[in-house]
């Protein structure tokens, strides 16, 4: 894992006419997690998308320690939005295989094992419950190891048992030198700094 830090300096984001926030600073080092909180519409999702390079910031800088921005976005970060990119009419197996392969994943079996996906693989994605779908989407985090995880409400559809299990997955990722920035409304089940975006 070559990406070792995330530095955000004086970032301002605008969506249409509305300035979401300005002068936002954040430093995230390897092994650290930050819980991004704030009211609906305060810009949590936009911040994650800006870090992933999908939105151009109004002002300020986003830098990655140990990797250039293009490399970081191509190979060193995962963005897990509330939209999971899974096609309803395809088999869970096919969608999982594609998402993992696309992210450069070599540990598909480990992901299936860890998230107990085996019984779901032969179902069409539209047959899965919201929580099962989310587990399927989370699988690429494990299947394709990338250091920076940008998670948008990762646990919202999960039940209590799976929230705890995913907490263990996140803790392991941090222990291995990973970085997590997660937009949440409920507290993360791992030690994390809080960053609140004012509405």
């Amino acid at each position: 894992m070559s990406l070792s830090a995330l530095h955000i300096e004086a970032l301002a984001l605008r969506r249409g006419e509305r300035l979401l926030f300005e002068r936002l600073d954040l430093d995230l080092a390897a092994g650290e997690a930050v819980a991004l909180t704030g009211a609906n519409g305060s810009g949590k999702t936009s911040l994650l998308r800006a870090i992933a390079g999908l939105i151009r910031p109004e002002a300020g800088a986003i830098r990655f320690g140990g990797a250039g921005p293009d490399d970081a976005r191509a190979e060193h970060l995962h963005l897990l939005g509330h939209q999971d990119g899974l096609k309803p009419h395809r088999l869970a197996r096919d969608e999982l295989a594609f998402q993992a392969a696309w992210a450069g994943g070599a540990r598909l079996d480990a992901a299936i094992d860890r998230l107990a996906l085996a019984p779901l693989l032969d179902l069409e994605v539209r047959r899965l419950s919201a929580g099962q779908r989310r587990r399927l989407a989370l699988a690429r985090l494990i299947a394709a190891p990338r250091p920076l995880w940008l998670l948008d409400e990762p646990m919202a559809p999960l039940d209590a048992a799976w929230r705890a299990r995913f907490g263990e997955v996140m803790a392991e990722h941090l222990a291995g030198g990973g970085l997590i920035l997660a937009a949440v409304h409920d507290p993360l089940p791992i030690p994390a700094r809080d960053l609140e975006l004012a509405a």
């Binding site: 992933a52 390079g53 999908l54 963005l79 939005g81 939209q83 990119g85 096609k87 696309w102």
Partner: peptide
Amino acid sequence: ERDYEDGALDLLTLSP
């Protein structure tokens, strides 16, 4: 359109 609406287009950009 489908990839745009369901978020798959985001994933397609995050790759070498």
